[in-house]
Simulated assay, not measured.
Amino acid sequence: MYVRTGFTKDELAFLVAMALGGTVQRAAWGVIGVSGESWEVTLSANPVTGEPDDDFVNWPWQIEYEPESVPTAAGAAVRDMGALLEALWAAGHWAVAACDYEHLLPNSGGWHAGRYLGQPGAV
């Protein structure tokens, strides 16, 4: 998932934790991710540089979702990533999923219904 927001990593991690019912994981150097009962989320600055408005691959944050259980991975991923997309959009952030199951997510993972660009005026 790619996210365009003015949030810091800490603020974004808190939003992810609230949306998915997880716990922010910290190390001495700061936030390293969010974890739940059967999943982990890694938040990282996007290494691709460019103008954020040009394309989602240039947006500043990447969120990686990893379920711990392979047999239930597909259902859990669709449920959790759908909830996270909805939470990000509701908060006014730009978010789009880029995954094998995006067609199963709300608004096709952000590709339709104006969700690709988030809410008007969002940062």
Rank of each mutant, 00 (worst) to 15 (best):
M1P: 10
V3E: 11
R4W: 12
T5W: 11
G6H: 14
G6M: 08
G6Q: 10
F7P: 00
T8L: 07
K9T: 01
K9D: 01
K9I: 05
K9C: 05
D10Q: 11
D10A: 15
E11Q: 10
L12K: 03
L12F: 04
F14N: 10
F14W: 09
V16Y: 01
V16G: 03
A17P: 01
M18N: 09
M18D: 12
A19K: 03
A19I: 05
G21W: 09
G22L: 08
G22F: 08
T23Y: 07
Q25K: 10
R26Q: 11
A27H: 13
A27R: 15
A28H: 09
W29R: 13
V31C: 03
I32Q: 15
I32T: 15
G33Q: 02
G33P: 01
V34T: 07
S35W: 05
G36Q: 02
W39S: 01
E40P: 00
E40Y: 07
V41M: 12
L43F: 12
L43M: 13
S44V: 13
A45W: 08
N46W: 15
T49V: 12
T49C: 06
G50P: 01
G50N: 01
G50V: 03
P52S: 07
D53Q: 08
D53I: 02
D55H: 15
D55I: 09
D55R: 08
F56L: 11
F56H: 14
V57F: 07
V57K: 09
W59D: 10
Q62F: 01
I63K: 09
E64K: 10
E64N: 09
E64W: 09
Y65K: 05
P67N: 06
E68C: 02
E68F: 11
V70H: 13
V70S: 14
V70K: 13
V70R: 14
V70Y: 14
A73C: 14
A73L: 13
A74N: 05
A77H: 08
R79L: 14
R79K: 15
D80L: 12
D80K: 11
G82L: 04
A83D: 07
A83R: 09
A83G: 06
L84E: 04
A87F: 07
A87N: 03
A87G: 07
A90F: 01
A90W: 00
A91F: 02
H93R: 06
W94L: 13
A95N: 09
V96R: 05
V96W: 02
V96Y: 02
A97F: 12
A98I: 04
A98M: 05
D100E: 12
H103W: 11
L104P: 04
P106I: 07
P106R: 10
N107E: 05
N107S: 09
S108D: 03
S108M: 00
S108H: 03
S108R: 06
G110D: 11
G110K: 05
G114A: 09
Y116E: 05
L117C: 12
G121A: 14
G121C: 11
A122R: 12
